[in-house]
Amino acid sequence: MVPRVPALRALVGSEWITLDRAEKWLKAIGAASLLAQATGLPERSNLYQILSAPTPGHILRRIEQSNETGTLNYQQLQYLEILKEVLQ
């Protein structure tokens, strides 16, 4: 069950996450937590902002802007691929 937080329910699209979607969301939350520091987003809302990004490109751009070299590593690209499964 998704907590009774309207923003979370809107993000997931329902009150319950079905078993077939649960694995995707679990992987996406894990990927978002591993990318959070690289984005430079505020710690209080970084997971939500990543998971509610319009596209993986928005997250990519945020990482590029936060990084001194403006580059991503291979692992970060893999995390973006995982997030692609749940981003709307």
Rank of each mutant, 00 (worst) to 15 (best):
A10H: 13
L72W: 00
Q49W: 09
S33Y: 06
Q65E: 13
E68D: 11
Y79A: 00
I82N: 01
A28H: 09
S52V: 03
L41C: 03
L77G: 14
T18K: 10
Y48D: 01
R62D: 02
W16F: 12
A7N: 09
K24P: 04
W25H: 09
R44N: 13
E23W: 04
N67E: 10
Q49P: 02
R21F: 03
T55H: 13
L47D: 01
V86A: 02
W25S: 03
L87E: 07
P3G: 00
E81V: 04
S33A: 15
G13C: 10
L83D: 05
S14A: 15
E43P: 11
Y74F: 10
L19Q: 14
W16A: 13
Y74H: 08
N46Q: 14
P3V: 03
R9H: 01
T39S: 05
G70P: 03
P54R: 14
K27V: 02
T69A: 11
A38N: 04
N73Q: 01
L41Q: 03
A53L: 11
I63Y: 04
Q49Y: 11
M1W: 03
A32C: 13
Q75M: 04
R62S: 11
R4F: 03
Q65P: 00
N67R: 10
V5F: 03
T55G: 02
A36Q: 05
G57E: 13
P54M: 11
G30P: 01
R61M: 13
Q75L: 05
Q65S: 02
A22H: 10
K27P: 00
A38G: 02
G57D: 14
I17W: 06
K84R: 13
S52F: 04
L80N: 05
S66K: 06
A28V: 06
Q78F: 00
E85W: 03
G40P: 07
A36C: 11
L60V: 00
I29E: 10
N46P: 04
G40D: 07
Y74I: 07
L11I: 05
A10K: 15
A36G: 15
W16T: 15
K84P: 00
A10V: 08
R21C: 09
Q78T: 03
A10E: 14
H58E: 13
E64C: 07
L19W: 05
L11V: 09
A7F: 03
A38M: 01
I50H: 05
E81C: 00
W25I: 06
R4D: 09
Y74M: 06
T18D: 14
E23A: 14
V12F: 12
Q75C: 00
K24R: 10
Q49A: 15
L72D: 04
Q88G: 15
H58G: 14
L26H: 12
V86R: 01
S14P: 02
Q37L: 08
E64Q: 14
N73P: 01
